[in-house]
Amino acid sequence: MIVADQKPINEILGMLERYDKVLFVGCQTCVAVCMAGGEKETGVLASLVRLARQKAGQPIEIDEAAIQRQCEEEFIEPLEADGYQAILSLGCGVGVNKLADHFGIPVLPGLNTGFMGHIEEHGVWAETCAGCGDCVLHRTGGICPVVRCAKSLMNGPCGGYTDDGLCESGTGAPCAWIAIYKRLKELGLLESMTETSPPKDWSKDRFSGPRTRVREDVRL
């Protein structure tokens, strides 16, 4: 799932400063699950913004809505934005893009979209895939070196990890390659570590420009 976090309230208040009638739109998919932008969080943020603006003597009118997925045109379609000066989206960045394409008014991001990740424990989310476009997990025991190794090494470990097995970069994260080593050992596949991985095809990564995917057979 996509994991996002609400922007600091002061930043949001800053974005909204010039408006006094705004629609807040939540998304009931990934960001609902990571408790950043579902219907509930939309309500909480709206309430907080109204309160802050009241306090500042500049009341704001906010209506709230939440749709199934902000990344789909058909779900956006029924939304009415007439009469609002702006929309604040609590979807991930994709949602903000889509709403901005659809409506002719400013669409503001309520969230900082973070990463693709999983839930480590209730209330704790961690990044587990970088969406690099050229997956290597078959060689690494299902542990992604692109995100979990600070240097995205393909043939680790670098040797710089601390005595307690943490990454030398000081992130406090455990060394991904020690984890890969242990996993491969458990799987009886340790000898695969002796094979050197070929250079990775980074052209499929997002740094090489926006990516699209087409499947001709399903196109309408």
């Binding site: 309230i9 907080l48 309160l51 802050a52 306090k55």
Partner: peptide, 8 residues
Amino acid sequence: QLISNIGL
């Protein structure tokens, strides 16, 4: 925490 963030 939320309210203290907005100065209450």
